[in-house]
Design a protein around this nucleic acid. Structure first.
Length: 486
RNA sequence: CGGGGCGUAGUGUAACGGUAGCACGAGUCCUUUGGGAGGAUUUAGUCCGAGUUCAAAUCUCGGCGCCCCGACCA
C-alpha cells in the first residue's frame, strides 16, 4: 500500500485517463520524443537504456541456448515476400515499398521488411543440405516497419526495434521444443526482470501469425483490464520450407522438409512496462531493469557550511555502491529546489532515493525512500551496500507480487454470455470461459463486445472437458481467455 | 480508408472581422534550496496558398499537417 501520492504538476492521473497519462509519462520521463515522421518515435537515452537491458539479458539466454546472431537485409524483393500466400496477405496492408532508388524507378519494388521470414528462408535453402546442418538457430536484432494506421509510442509504432529468432529443425518435435523454449525465455524475462506476471498460451486461428501452423504468445494484463500481446513464438511447421524449397537429406539419404519456428519480442515490451507499474507520480522502474537503481540527493544549499562534506560523503557512498554493482546516479544540483528534484526523479521511476544532508551526516544514516510505496526509512551507512541491495530486492519482489495480484483480480471466470458482457461493462477484465473455438463465433463476440480471444493457457491445451460455448452454446472442451486488446 | 475536431512563440492556451495577449520553458542578475521558490529583465508566434474586406488568427475555397472515434493491426 502506498503511504501517499505525490501529485505531479500537469501530469494526468493514471486512474482518470490512462491514455493521456501514458503519453505524458513517455515524454516527461524522457523515454521518447515524437519525430517528424508520423507514427515514428525517437527513443531517448533513458528509454534506450531499458531496451539495451532487454537486449543484453535475452541475448545472453539465446546464446546459452545455442542461438547465433546474424543480420539480414532491410530490403526484401516484393516477389520474394509474395511467395507465401497467407504471409503476404497478412502483411500487405501495412507494407512500406520502395519504388525509386538511385534516381530511377526500380524494375522490381523493394519492401522494407515487416519481418524477415522470407528473406531469411530464401537463404536458409542454400545453407541447409543435410541433417548435419540442423538444427539451425539464428537470431537478429533489427528494426522493422509496419505501416499501422493508428500508432502509439512504444505500443504500436510504424518502425520498431525487435529481435526475431528463426530456427530450422529436423522434426516437428524439435521445432515444438524450440517454440516453447523461446516462450519460456519471454515469460522468465517478464517475470524476473520486468516484474510482470503474464499469461502464456496458444493463439486462436484468427489471431495466428500469417503462414504459421500455431502461434503462442505472452499476454500482459494491463491495470485497465486490457490485454497487451507482449511476445510471440510461432510453430511454422513445414509451410515455409515447402514454399522456399528448404530440404535436407536425412540419415537414410532421403530428402525431407524441415520444421521451422520464429519468435520475437519488440520495443512494445517497454510500453507494457510503463503501463504495468507506473502510477500518478510517474514511472516506476523495477530495480533489475532500472537504468538508475539508486539516486543519491544532496540536501542543502550551495552556501551551506557542510556542503563540501555532504558532497564528498555522497561521492564515497556512490563509489561504494557502484563497486557492489549497483547502478547509482548522484544529484548535487543546487539550482533547483528540493521538491523539484525529487519530483523529477520520481517521474523517471528510480526505484530507490537516498537523501543525504546535515542530519544524515550527524547521525551516520541515510534517508531511503522507495519509489513504489514512498515508504521512508533510515539506513545505517555502515551496512549501506547490504541495506540498499536488500531494499532493491524487496522492491523487485513486491512489484512482481503486485502484478500477480492485479492479474488475479482482473481475471474473471464466466459461463454465460450475459455474465461476459456484464463483466466487460462493469469492470473491464480478462475473462476465462469455455469456448467452441469457431472463428465465426469469435467474430461475433468481437463485433458485440470488442473483446477477442487472447490465448488458451498452456495448462489448458490438453483439457477435454465437456462444456458448452459461453457465446453460442455449441460444444466446447477448453477454457480460453478473452479480453479487449491494445 | 470512413466520421468528427483542430492548426497562434520551444510547449500549452486566449483574442465580437479592428493594438496578437497570458502561462510554462529558455537566457541573464539577485535572493532562495529538508516535497515542484520569489523578484527584476530578455527571448520568441498566427501551417501554406488564393479569395472576400478599408481591415483576416478570425469569414470562404484549396493544399498540407496533426488529434480523437471507427475500420485495419503480431
Amino acid at each position: 500500500m502506498k503511504e501517499k501520492e505525490f501529485i505531479k504538476k500537469g501530469l494526468t492521473k493514471k486512474s482518470e485517463n490512462i491514455s493521456d497519462w501514458y503519453h505524458d509519462i513517455v515524454l516527461r520521463a524522457g523515454l521518447a520524443d515524437y519525430s517528424e515522421v508520423k507514427g515514428s518515435m525517437i527513443i531517448k537515452p533513458y528509454g534506450y537504456a531499458i531496451w539495451e537491458h532487454v537486449q543484453q539479458t535475452l541475448d545472453s539466454w539465446f546464446k546459452e541456448g545455442g542461438v547465433q546472431n546474424a543480420y539480414f537485409p532491410l530490403f526484401i524483393p516484393y516477389s520474394l515476400l509474395k511467395k507465401e500466400k497467407e504471409h503476404v496477405e497478412g502483411f500487405s496492408p501495412e507494407l512500406a515499398i520502395v519504388t525509386h532508388a538511385g534516381g530511377e524507378e526500380l524494375a522490381e519494388p523493394l519492401v522494407v521488411r515487416p519481418t524477415s521470414e522470407t528473406i531469411m528462408y530464401e537463404t536458409f535453402s542454400k545453407w541447409i543440405q543435410s541433417y548435419r546442418d540442423l538444427p539451425l538457430l539464428i537470431n537478429q536484432w533489427c528494426n522493422v516497419v509496419r505501416w499501422e494506421k493508428r500508432t502509439y509510442p512504444f505500443l504500436r509504432t510504424t518502425e520498431f526495434l525487435w529481435q526475431e529468432g528463426h530456427t530450422v529443425h529436423t522434426s516437428e518435435e524439435g521445432a515444438m521444443e524450440m517454440v516453447l523454449k523461446a516462450l519460456g525465455w519471454y515469460k522468465k524475462f517478464y517475470k524476473e526482470h520486468f516484474a510482470i506476471s503474464p499469461y502464456v498460451g496458444l493463439k486462436s486461428g484468427s489471431e495466428r501469425f500469417a503462414g504459421a501452423k500455431a502461434t503462442y504468445s505472452v499476454e500482459l494484463v494491463i491495470p485497465d483490464g486490457k490485454a497487451l500481446q507482449a511476445a510471440t513464438s510461432h510453430n511454422l511447421s513445414d509451410h515455409f520450407a515447402k514454399v522456399f524449397d528448404i530440404q535436407f537429406l536425412n540419415e537414410k539419404g532421403e530428402k525431407q522438409y524441415p520444421h521451422q519456428t520464429s519468435w520475437g519480442l519488440s520495443t512494445r515490451s517497454i510500453g507494457g512496462l510503463i503501463l504495468s507499474h507506473g502510477d500518478d507520480s510517474g514511472l516506476v522502474m523495477p530495480p533489475r531493469v532500472a537504468p538508475h537503481q539508486v539516486v543519491i540527493l544532496a540536501i542543502g544549499s550551495a552556501e551551506d557550511s557542510e556542503r563540501s562534506k555532504i558532497e564528498s560523503v555522497i561521492q564515497d557512498y556512490a563509489t561504494e555502491l557502484k563497486k557492489a554493482g549497483i547502478r547509482v546516479v548522484v544529484d548535487l544540483d543546487t539550482t533547483h529546489s528540493m521538491g523539484y528534484r525529487i519530483n523529477e526523479w520520481e517521474l523517471k521511476g528510480v526505484p530507490l532515493r537516498l537523501e543525504i544532508g546535515k542530519r544524515e551526516i550527524a547521525d551516520g544514516k541515510a534517508t531511503a525512500v522507495r519509489r513504489d510505496t514512498f515508504a521512508k526509512n533510515q539506513l545505517d551507512v555502515k551496512n549501506l551496500v547490504s541495506e540498499v541491495s536488500s531494499l532493491l530486492d524487496k522492491i523487485q519482489a513486491d512489484l512482481l507480487a503486485q502484478s500477480e495480484k492485479i492479474k488475479r483480480e482482473l481475471t474473471v471466470d464466466v459461463a454465460s454470455y450475459d455474465d461476459f458482457k456484464k463483466t466487460l461493462i462493469e469492470h473491464r477484465s480478462f475473462i476465462r470461459a469455455p469456448w467452441c473455438e469457431d472463428a465465426a463465433c469469435e467474430a461475433n463476440i468481437k463485433e458485440e463486445t470488442k473483446a477477442t480471444s487472447r490465448i488458451l493457457e498452456l495448462d489448458q491445451i490438453d483439457q477435454k472437458e465437456s462444456l458448452s460455448c459461453f457465446a453460442c452454446g455449441k460444444p466446447a472442451f477448453r477454457r480460453w481467455l478473452f479480453a479487449q486488446a491494445y
